[in-house]
Amino acid sequence: MVESILPNIIVDVLGETCPIPLVEMRKAVMKAQEGQIIEVKGDHGPSKLEIPLAVKSLGLKLLHVREDGDGVWHIFIEK
């Protein structure tokens, strides 16, 4: 099921630290249309925790959080 999430927008914040992943996520949410799916992909550990907090605060839907073995995480958000 998880494999079937196809994002409309991909936000690549690999190598970026706080607060850039959060900021780039917000920019993508501003651009996205209702119902579209955004994938945020990064490797800054603390951002993996704060983005779901922002998703809740913005009233969006957190679909899935996946972490690869190499510390890279993927967060799927529905607007």
């Binding site: 607060p19 959060l22 900021v23 917000r26 907090l53 922002a54 913005l58 009233g59």
Partner: peptide
């Protein structure tokens, strides 16, 4: 400031 903007 950016944090608060990003969180709505």
């Amino acid at each position: 400031g950016n944090g608060f903007l990003a969180m709505g």
